[in-house]
Design a binder for these strands. Structure first.
Length: 836
RNA sequence: GCCCCAGUAGCCCAAUCGGCAGAGGCGGCGGACUUAAAAUCCGCGCAGUGUGGGUUCGAGUCCCACCUGGGGCACCA
């Protein structure tokens, strides 16, 4: 059985000699704070870089996942500082949200109490964790000074027509008693609490993110190579652009119902002649509008039935198709054929036009429906497969058009183009594009969020709260049971808060009582970091120009769509508003993996949780950070059962001891030092830079370990502790180690005789001449197998190397009299002799 | 079903352009020091790169097919 680290199984280890992490932490933590080491200078003397970690939600204390993510971000921030950049590395809290409200209800408190207590705990933990953050820019999205500008942002979108209210069936979480955005529904369940989501017809606020679908998609080209490919793939998938055509069908008059036109969206206009029936979404208004009196009762009953299905049930793909005939007929605009109109729940009200032409021969869903209700199936593309009417398997591949009048004989792609032309000429259709992406439902019926800054007036309608009246503050007299979910926002019951004079007419009016999705808060915070104390604007355009966009963003892949898509959208809106000169907020993205234990995510129910605080107590901050970084590439998961924080501590102690052993004075000229050790030092530093640029932090640690080993050997069994090359190596170790073990590295740096912070040291200059080797081992292969090695000068010529290789003992032995067919020479490293 | 990513030693992981499969660590084994242990130091690599083909003088690396694991999308017309 696989072992799992748990508190119960771990007996205290003895600490490695000399190195005492508790003392180092107590010494250097306060010293960094006192000397304000990590705030950017922002005076333009150095090139600026902006690195941000996805800010935390203040639920309890920091956990192992935070420890990993922030360790990664800090490597980048510290590396860039060493490379001479002026680095902005801020911290803040995503401090609105449901957990605070639920805690407040349980404890009869105000959500702010729980929230700010947790923030204080987390802030203390962040400081202990030794992160190189600029604390002066700290922000909390639940501060009125912040959410004032979130409300301002809402009004920008409102004024641009990008924020609107509509009545629509929306996702409703019965447990949390609030609506959810599409992005927050995972497999038909609430992303937060796992409760199956139901549909509810409500009037809700939306952001028109679909207007930006094309740009969100196309601008990803610029992110390729800098963002993880899978995140881009997920966003592409989510936006789901599909090209096709709108085609108008006339629905014939029937009884009292007049003739009317209904448009469908199809990606396969080539199959128009194969449409044998017509389907509208059962839950769309269109269904009730079309149904004849005779069939109305059937439809009502069917709609009732559909309404009671959960999303999970409705989406089961193996479910038998259901639907009702509406008593009407649609006319095919090309063939003139009359086809029956049905309502069914497999057609979605909010995708395309909520109506489709059904081509059962070439669409599996339509075929399933046709077979259930015994509707005709007519193949119009000869794909070479068997007849779908017989097999029950729709054919979607390429083929030759048949039974299709003017399209007969064309291939699929040609037929699509021709069909679009034909409907275009007839004035009954056109090419179009459709998206899976839906508008962003942002209103929430909960308390702990930024109130939507709209006032509802009977005379004037929707009136935006004037900018100077912002923020619309949350009342501070609501607590405990006042906040209990009740199907509408708790704010609605606070009459004193709701009643307000209309800003337009002065008459009696009421505030909008919904609050904003917390993803609105987090969609713009990286802009706020550039001027967090600005009281005149959401952000100072000058400051944004200096720092933004974020050069390196770090966070978990769980936000691959949600937060990242929303931030990209908001950035584009602010760009269109003329407030930003860039259109993407995050130039580069790094997704750190998860921290697992025993192959599974840590969880209470599995009992495999590892407490960060206890790990820090036991091994020290540096050892935990080092363990996180060294375990694997940043984007891979770390399994705590597979790693050894004790081993990390051992290495840190080993590195740290080097500093005390160095016997040459500060400034000793390394040129006089041992060349072999110097070559290792300079090679390591040069490689580390390339590896860091490539985010291979685990390899940087491995290379640092090598350098430590080489230095140890030089002290004990080489030129000795007094050699200046040993000092040079130890200083390089301190600098490299400062990326992941800041306390240990800082102490080393000072023991080595330096006064300033190690993170303000310069990245060591690499002496290229030390990287050049005099001789190199050339490998001699016979038929691809290594048969000999030769020490040769690096600049050996091809001919000479060939001769020496052919004369090599191993070659003669291996050839054993056989002749030579070809000799491939790659001077100076390799010769491959191909025998005859 | 479609789309992405990954399979290297008992384990975590390295391996610029296709060029000696092993840098680093964990574990294991052996040794030095010790009355003993801890700590420290030294030494030892045990797999031929998921499978099968292909290209090449040469493949962990490139191509094709497949297997396994992880993730995303999925009644989206």
């Amino acid at each position: 059985m696989r072992s799992v680290n748990t508190e119960a199984q771990t007996a205290p280890d003895a600490q490695p000699t000399g190195w005492d992490f508790a003392t180092l932490e107590a010494t250097w933590g306060p010293w960094w704070e006192e000397h304000d080491v990590f705030a950017p200078v922002d005076d333009g003397s150095r090139e600026r870089r902006y690195v941000a970690d996805m800010f935390p939600y203040p639920s309890g204390d920091l956990h192992m996942g935070h420890a990993e993510a922030f360790a990664m971000g800090d490597v980048v921030a510290r590396y860039w500082r060493l490379r001479g950049y002026d680095v902005l590395h801020p911290i803040g809290w995503d401090s609105f949200g449901l957990p605070a409200e639920n805690a407040a209800i349980a404890r009869n408190a105000h959500p702010a109490e729980w929230t700010y207590a947790n923030i204080a705990t987390q802030a203390a933990s962040f400081k202990r964790y030794g992160l190189s953050l600029d604390w002066s820019r700290r922000l909390h999205t639940s501060d009125p000074e912040y959410y004032r500008w979130t409300q301002w942002l809402f009004l920008q979108l409102y004024r641009r027509g990008l924020a609107y209210r509509k009545n629509s069936p929306v996702n409703w979480c019965p447990k949390d008693q609030t609506v959810l955005a599409n992005e927050q529904v995972v497999n038909g369940a609430c992303e937060r609490c796992g409760t199956p989501v139901t549909k509810k017809a409500l009037n809700q606020w939306y952001f028109r993110i679909t207007d930006y679908a094309d740009r969100l998609l196309d601008d990803m080209d610029a992110l390729a190579g800098h963002w993880p490919e899978r995140v881009l793939a997920m966003q592409r998938n989510w936006i789901g652009r599909s090209t096709g055509a709108h085609v108008d069908f006339v629905i014939e008059a029937a009884g009292s119902a007049p003739e009317r036109k209904v448009t469908v969206f199809t990606t396969r206009p080539d199959t128009l002649y194969g449409a044998t029936f017509f389907v509208v979404a059962a839950d769309a208004d269109l269904a009730t509008e079309l149904v004849t009196d005779e069939h109305a009762q059937m439809l009502t009953a069917y709609r009732e039935e559909v309404k009671h299905l959960s999303d999970i049930e409705r989406q089961a793909t193996d479910r038998t198709k259901t639907g009702v005939f509406l008593g009407r007929y649609a006319v095919n605009p090309l063939s003139g054929e009359r086809i029956p109109v049905w309502a069914a729940d497999y057609v979605l009200a909010d995708y395309g036009t909520g109506a489709i032409m059904a081509v059962p021969a070439h669409d599996q869903r339509d075929l399933d429906f046709a077979r259930t209700f015994d509707l005709p199936v007519r193949a119009v593309v000869d794909t070479g497969d068997e007849d779908p009417a017989v097999t029950g398997i729709a054919t979607a591949g390429d083929g030759t058009l048949i039974n299709s009048g003017p399209l007969d004989g064309l291939a699929k792609a040609e037929a699509i183009a021709r069909a679009v032309e034909l409907v275009g000429e007839a004035g009954t259709g056109e090419a179009t594009v459709n998206y899976r992406l839906r508008d962003w439902l942002l209103s929430r019926q909960r308390f702990w969020g930024a109130p939507i800054p709209i006032i509802h007036c009977e005379t004037c309608g929707e009136v935006p709260v004037p900018d100077e009246a912002l923020p619309v503050r949350l009342p501070d007299d609501m607590r405990g049971a006042d906040l209990a979910p009740q199907g509408q926002s708790p704010l609605a019951s606070n009459e004193a808060w709701v009643r307000v004079d209309c800003p337009a007419c002065g008459g009696e009016a009421r505030r909008d009582t919904d609050t904003m999705d917390t993803f609105v808060d987090s969609s713009w915070y990286v802009l706020r970091y550039t001027s967090p104390h600005d009281t005149e604007a959401a952000f100072d355009p000058e400051a944004v120009r200096r720092w933004a966009p974020v050069d390196q963003y770090v966070g978990g892949v769980e936000h691959a769509i949600l937060h990242l898509l929303y931030s990209r959208f908001i950035t584009k809106v602010l760009h269109d508003e003329g407030l930003l000169d860039f259109t993407e907020p995050f130039t580069a993205l790094l997704n750190q993996g998860q921290v697992l234990n025993g192959g599974r995510a840590m969880s209470k129910s599995l009992g495999n949780g590892v407490d960060l605080g206890q790990q820090l107590d036991r091994y020290g901050v540096d050892a935990i950070r080092l363990t996180m970084v060294f375990a694997s590439p940043p984007e891979d998961d770390v399994d705590w059962a597979d790693v050894s924080p004790a081993g990390s501590a051992k290495f840190l102690a080993r590195a740290w001891r080097l500093a005390s052993d160095v016997a040459s004075p500060v400034g000793a000229d390394p040129a006089a030092g041992d060349r072999a050790l110097r070559a290792v030092t300079h090679r390591t530093v040069a490689d580390a830079a390339a590896l860091l640029d490539d985010h291979k932090f685990n390899v940087v640690v491995a290379r640092t370990m090598e350098l430590v080993n080489a230095t140890r050997k030089a002290i004990d069994a080489g030129p000795g502790a007094g050699d200046p090359a040993v000092r040079e190596a130890a200083e390089a170790v301190a600098i490299l180690l400062s990326l992941v073990g800041p306390y240990t590295a800082e102490d080393m740096w000072h023991r080595l005789g330096h006064d300033g912070p190690v993170n303000q040291a310069a990245w060591p200059t690499v002496d290229e001449s030390l990287l050049v080797q005099q001789t190199v081992t050339a490998v001699v292969q016979v038929a691809g197998k290594v048969r000999d090695r030769l020490e040769v000068p690096v600049d050996i010529g091809e001919d000479e190397l060939r001769e020496r290789a052919l004369a090599a003992d191993g070659v003669t032995r291996s050839l054993d009299g056989r002749g030579v067919r070809t000799v491939i020479v790659r001077a100076p490293k390799l010769v491959n002799i191909v025998p005859a």
